[in-house]
């Protein structure tokens, strides 16, 4: 019954296999909860479309408001928020889920490093999020006359990729909450997410916000992600002209991911010291 199954491998290769394990696990979960995924897809698409129709409903103003541009502006915000918030949520929701099911103990007692655990889960979120957003974008495009004639899709994808890194870091920081308390932790994560929604200029330019909110918006990666993607899609800007949006995202990514891992490590140490990893639910 028992024999040595695993050949000796370099540590990095074991970590790579483990990262794939986390991707595979979340894929299995998506597959099993397909109906729920469909429900969320329809909800998010309907939400984005309803926001798009607000744009359509606006008459050209005296100042010469371009309705087509406004609609595109709003839909980019809605779709990008759907993608970024999902990325951000998947990490904390997966940790909550693992706490409810009790599998977190088996994850934590495995030799896979915490970076592999969290990055593996994030890789799945990025792949799934991009596929979902592209499908949603294609679907919504059928209903609206969007201003995308000069869009630079490559620049938009570059901005999105870089923004994803910093959002993953933010997600790691907030994932520590459900680790310590699945129920309360999820609530805190939702509050955090809603604050990002408010201050980052999803549906309006950041400069309409009060001064103090604009100051907070400067530390939200979503602000720069939106500026960058809107610049690329609405104005066809290339990577070099988008640099003012890209460099803050690079800095935030470089800070947020190590910070996220460190905060999660502290949370894990605390949970192990106080015996909080037992099944909750």
């Amino acid at each position: 019954m028992h024999q040595t199954l695993t050949p000796r491998r370099a540590t990095w290769l074991n970590e790579l296999i483990a990262a794939w394990g986390f991707v595979q696990r979340n894929y299995y979960l998506t597959k099993r909860y397909f109906m729920w995924e469909l429900v969320w897809f329809v909800y998010s698409a309907a939400n984005a479309m309803s926001i798009g129709f607000i744009g359509v409903g606006v008459e050209r103003s005296e100042a010469g408001q371009d309705v087509q541009r406004l609609t595109t502006f709003l839909l980019i915000g809605a779709l990008l928020w759907s993608y970024l918030s999902m990325l951000f949520d998947i990490l904390s929701e997966t940790v909550s889920w693992e706490r409810w099911e009790g599998t977190i103990e088996y994850t934590f007692m495995s030799p896979a490093s915490r970076a592999t655990h969290l990055i593996g889960t994030s890789i799945y979120a990025v792949i799934y999020g991009i596929i979902r957003t592209v499908i949603m974008f294609a679907l919504i495009s059928l209903f609206f006359d969007l201003e995308l004639q000069g869009a630079n899709y490559t620049s938009a994808l570059v901005v999105l990729a870089i923004a994803s890194i910093s959002l993953v870091g933010f997600g790691m920081v907030t994932a520590v909450m459900p680790l310590l308390s699945p129920e309360k932790g999820q609530q805190v994560t939702m509050i955090f997410g809603s604050l990002l929604l408010l201050i980052s200029g999803i549906y309006y330019p950041v400069d309409v916000l009060p001064g103090w909110m604009q100051a907070i918006a400067t530390i939200s990666p979503v602000t720069y992600a939106l500026e960058g993607v809107r610049g690329a899609l609405l104005d066809g800007e290339n990577v070099s002209t988008l640099w003012p949006s890209i460099w803050p995202l690079l800095v935030m990514g470089a800070i947020c991911v190590p910070l996220g891992l460190w905060v999660f490590h502290l949370g894990e140490r605390y949970a192990k010291r106080t015996g909080r990893l037992k099944r909750s639910g």
Partner: peptide
């Protein structure tokens, strides 16, 4: 079983 084996470096083909 398939995903949790990977946490220990066991590949799909091995598992």
């Amino acid at each position: 079983l398939m995903y949790s084996a990977k946490f220990y470096g066991v590949t799909t083909n091995e598992a």
